[in-house]
Each structure stands twice: as C-alpha cells, then as structure tokens.
Design a protein around this nucleic acid. Structure first.
Lengths: 158, 158
DNA sequence: GCAATATAGTATGGTATCAAACTAAATGGG
DNA sequence: CCCATTTAGTTTGATACCATACTATATTGC
C-alpha cells in the first residue's frame, strides 16, 4: 500500500507542535494546581506551600530577591506571598545585618509543621496516579522537561 | 566496583517524583506564558488568546459553559474573559434561541484578525527553541503529557 | 568623596483564577 | 400543573501574578 512517493511532509510545523506541547503543559498545571490547592491545610495556597517547601528542602535564610529568582516569580509577587506567610506566623523576616537594603527569610516552627501537614495531605492524591502514570513514565519525562525549563530559563526573552 | 548487594532502593518515592514533575511543569508554564503574554498584540492576554484560538480552530457558536469545560476554567472565569473580549469587539455573544438560560459565543472579523496577528507574533519565539528542543523531543513528550492530562481530567477530584 | 548607576524591596493597577453564593430558566416526578 | 432539582450564567471576595513606577541603600568610577 505505502510507497516511497506516498511519504507525506509533517502535518504539523515545529512551531505548531511546540505550541501544542506548551498548551498541554498549561492545562496540566491548571488541573494539578487547583486539585492540590483544594486539599492544602491551614489556609495555605499553592504559592505559599511552594515557598515553605523550598525553605524546608533547600534551607532558609535567603533574601526575597533570591527566592523570587529561584521560584520564578517577580519580586512584587514575592513581597505579597511573604507578607501573607508572615501574617500566618509561618515565616519570620529579619533585616540583613550586612546589607541595609536586604531582608532574610526564616521558617518558624509553625511553618515547618504546616509544610509537613501539607505534604501528608498531598501524598494520597499523588499516590492515586499509580499505576496509570507509571514510575517509568515520570522518570522518563523529568529530564526532558528539565531541558525545556532550562532553555526557557536561559532565553528569558525579557 | 558495583555488586548486586550494592543495588540501592530508589532515592525518591513515586510521590516525590510525581511532585517534582508537576513542579517542573508549573515553572515551565509560568515561564512560557509570561514570555508569550509579553509579545501578544492588541492588548490580548494569554487567556483571551486561548479563547480566540479555540474558536478559530474548533469552531465558534459554543456556550460559555462548554468553553469553560473545554478550556478547563470555572464559569466565573469564563464570564470575565468573555466580557473583556466582547469589550474589545473580538467576539459577539448572542442569546441561545432555544435555551433561555444559555448564550452563544461567536468570533468577529476583528477577533479572527487579532488571533492571526498573535499567531504571527508568536512564531519567531517558538522557532528560537530549535534545535535545543528537538522536534523529536516535542513529538515524544506530547503523547505522554496527554496521558497525564487525561488522567488528571478524569480524576477531577472535584 | 561624590555623582551615576545598580540592586533590594514596596506600591499600584490590572487580569486571571477559584470558591461560594446567587438569579433565572429548564426539566422531571408526583 | 407544580414544586424540587438541575443547569446556565453572574457576582463577590480573595490570592497570584505581571508590569511599571517608586524609595532606599550599595557600589563604582572618576
């Protein structure tokens, strides 16, 4: 049936495919983060949890500017998220003793506990994905998505 | 050097890996959509473009409820996006002749043109990803991410 | 030293988003 | 037929986010 002369050019251009990919990623993000947000305890939002989680896993004591950079949000957004977490007493913000412009962000015991609660609440949801989303699929996707993220990161097109 | 008894258990649990994956996806979404949003013409936002794009590609005349479902946002969000697009005269919203509760959403010529302009503006950005993000990588990722999206979609955990 | 520049953080205004509460219209079971 | 329930859409209040413009402190070049 199929002959050499029947080979068709790609139906989608590279740009169309990449656009579809980013679209798919956008919807996944939306679904995952609303589902996750719904089960977070202590009135935490996804953004707030992300910050607490970062401090637990990567260590606290960073400046707001560093956190904004690492979590890929603007400094204005970080100002707002930090203020909300501080009001909940989940973090403490202290002036930097050396640089008069800067501040330093520290976890409180309550913050650490809230983060642990949130992790506990999330595990059952994540577990449900198995076996439809296999471990191999996840480990296969991760490095490729890291390449994509890293490219976007470098070509910040700002 | 390496012996059978040296085989280690997985360093990360399935849940941790999946969480990392969703995290990566979240950051990619953030970076891509801010970059994309910056170059959209006619004061379009990503959400507004997404709606116009859907109407061009999948046909117009749908109800707000259908659009909300298809684009994975709440009806409240759709109400807001439709109002903004209507104010720009990029869509027209008409009452459904049969169902007195419903409305129908139609593209205007201006809306179609604005969407085309936006696509033209986006292509150079997407092209820049080549060859770091290969076509094969994109075509490889797409079906797997569709599986993930589809799982999230079905288990809406709502 | 000091003026120009860079960097840290904040404030403002606008869009997107959700959840929850609401109105109006359709549908279905006595 | 009518009341209860469902469905379509809107409104409100809150958070997140960006862009832009601003203040204050540091750094650098001369």
């Amino acid at each position: 049936m199929s002959e050499l002369r029947d080979i068709q050019p790609p139906v989608f251009s590279y740009e169309q495919l990449l656009f579809q990919l980013l679209n798919e990623i956008g919807i996944i993000q939306q679904l995952a983060s609303t589902a996750f947000g719904r089960l977070l305890p202590h009135g935490l939002t996804v953004a707030q949890f992300t910050l607490l989680n970062h401090c637990v896993r990567m260590g606290d004591g960073k400046t707001p500017a560093q956190l904004a950079e690492l979590l890929q949000v603007t400094r204005g957004t970080m100002t707002s998220t930090l203020a909300r977490l501080e009001k909940k007493r989940f973090i403490r913000v202290a002036p930097d003793p050396i640089d008069g412009r800067a501040k330093r962000v520290f976890l409180t015991d309550d913050g650490r506990a809230a983060r642990d609660d949130a992790v506990k609440a999330a595990v059952p949801l994540l577990s449900q994905a198995h076996p439809e989303i296999s471990r191999d699929m996840v480990t296969g996707l991760l490095p490729e998505l890291r390449v994509l993220r890293s490219w976007l990161d470098q070509n910040r097109l700002a």
